[in-house]
């Protein structure tokens, strides 16, 4: 009897701090996002007024928000496709081919993942610098000294989103590559030997062995990547600035701007709810669309 009591006390003492912290700083704020989205709340004044779904109604007529949503979708699509293709490709090269310096490449490719987004964005500010001091512009001017005209990577509305994608891809490739390398190197060698005895070339092997066998891993990472894309694009826009007239605003940066800089907390949180639902639905759709019969080896 005493033993049982002791055990129960042990369980309670171990769990309590985690439950308290988790509840106070994660559960309650999350619920607050939803609750606040139904308020008209002008910020620091205590004036809170329940307006139901009115914030959402305003939201869908807010052209800035629509633009931000479009930008976000653009970034998700471009960054996801490029990152996935390249990281799978590089992973399969590093695992399957006898490349000299395999370790060296793995170490180097992972570096961007350990740097702060602020650091990466600062580096890319130097890379994209519109003057001749900019790393990219100075290279461009070498190739065509007469006709060279500065490219405003972070100022030209037509280019800016691509420039942001570039930084995001640069940051993400290594991480996903290392992830895929781990799952690829667990594929047994004899499958490839058998395939090559039957005359299957490298490309065939890639599509009929490597890709199907790491598919479940790709699916999981894809779901998480979409969510992290929304986050990352936010941080980059926060650091780069949202360009002339906010052309490269993304949904989260727009939310932050409304809630924090503009102090329209209710409206900002309504944006938050929409992004949450959006990322949830998108992840579910992607997960459904990529569903395949699971393969085992």
């Amino acid at each position: 009897m005493n033993k049982k009591k002791e055990k129960r006390r042990f369980i309670a003492v171990c769990l309590a701090p985690a439950i308290i912290l988790f509840t106070v700083f994660m559960i309650i704020p999350t619920l607050n996002v939803f609750w606040m989205s139904t308020l008209k709340w002008g910020g620091l004044s205590a004036n809170k007024e329940f307006v139901g779904l009115n914030n959402f109604k305003i939201l869908f007529e807010d052209m800035n928000f629509i633009q931000a949503l479009q930008n976000t979708i653009f970034l998700i699509v471009v960054v996801t496709i490029v990152t996935m293709v390249f990281s799978i490709l590089f992973a399969s090269i590093l695992v399957r081919e006898k490349v000299k310096g395999q370790n060296f490449f793995r170490i180097i490719f992972y570096i961007p993942n350990i740097l702060s987004v602020v650091v990466i964005a600062s580096i890319f500010t130097a890379i994209y610098d519109p003057s001749t001091n900019g790393l990219l512009n100075s290279i461009e001017s070498l190739f065509r000294p007469e006709t060279w005209e500065t490219t405003k990577y972070l100022g030209d509305p037509n280019i800016m989103l691509y420039a942001i994608s570039g930084a995001m891809i640069w940051q993400a490739i290594g991480y996903y590559m290392v992830m895929y390398m781990a799952s690829m190197s667990s594929i047994p060698e004899h499958l490839y030997e058998a395939a090559s005895l039957e005359g299957a070339g490298k490309i065939k092997q890639f599509f009929s062995i490597t890709l199907p066998l790491i598919w479940s891993n790709i699916r999981t990472t894809l779901t998480f990547f979409i969510i992290s894309c929304i986050n990352l694009s936010f941080l980059f826009v926060k650091v780069f600035g949202s360009g002339p007239g906010g052309v490269s605003e993304t949904v989260l940066s727009y939310m932050y701007k409304q809630a924090y800089s503009n102090a329209s907390y209710g409206y900002g949180m309504a944006i938050g709810v929409i992004i949450f639902l959006f990322s949830f639905v998108l992840s579910a759709l992607v997960s459904k669309a990529t569903e395949r019969e699971p393969l085992e080896f």
Binding site: L15, F22, T30, M36, N231, L252, Y260, G268, G272, I275
Partner: peptide, 24 residues
């Protein structure tokens, strides 16, 4: 329930909840 709550917590995104945390 605890295990499920923790799993669900993996999907909570700090960027959304930072404003409510600030207000709290």
């Amino acid at each position: 329930f605890m295990n499920t709550a923790m799993m669900a917590g993996l999907f909570i995104n700090v960027n959304y909840i930072v404003v409510p945390i600030f207000l709290m």
